[in-house]
């Protein structure tokens, strides 16, 4: 699964994207897996209320299923306009 990061999430993790081997059923499960990887993931995911998630480039939420999903993106609330 491709996992992409933007803005300060990208900076804290230190990567714009990576391939992740996972059998996580939901976004929350994937986050739990990532948090155990390394300290920088724990820091980036410490406050989920400050994060948003997109599945295959559509806004979603942390309870959503990852079944059939190819790309997961994590980022802070958007500041366009």
């Amino acid at each position: 699964m491709k996992v992409v990061y933007f803005a300060w999430v990208r900076e804290r993790i230190g990567l714009p994207k990576e391939e992740v081997e996972t059998s996580a059923a939901t976004v929350a499960d994937l986050v739990a897996e990532l948090r155990t990887k390394e300290e920088r993931y724990e820091v980036a995911f410490s406050d989920l209320s400050a994060l948003r998630v997109a599945l295959d480039q559509e806004l979603s939420d942390f309870e959503a299923s990852l079944e059939g999903v190819k790309e997961v993106a994590f980022f802070p609330p958007m500041t366009g306009g």
Partner: peptide, 19 residues
């Protein structure tokens, strides 16, 4: 556009960069 389009602004000054 402000909160549903995936853009993130960062402000750069002489001695800082903040989202």
């Amino acid at each position: 556009l402000k909160s549903r389009a995936p853009f993130w602004k960062q402000e750069i000054t002489k001695d800082s960069a903040s989202w």
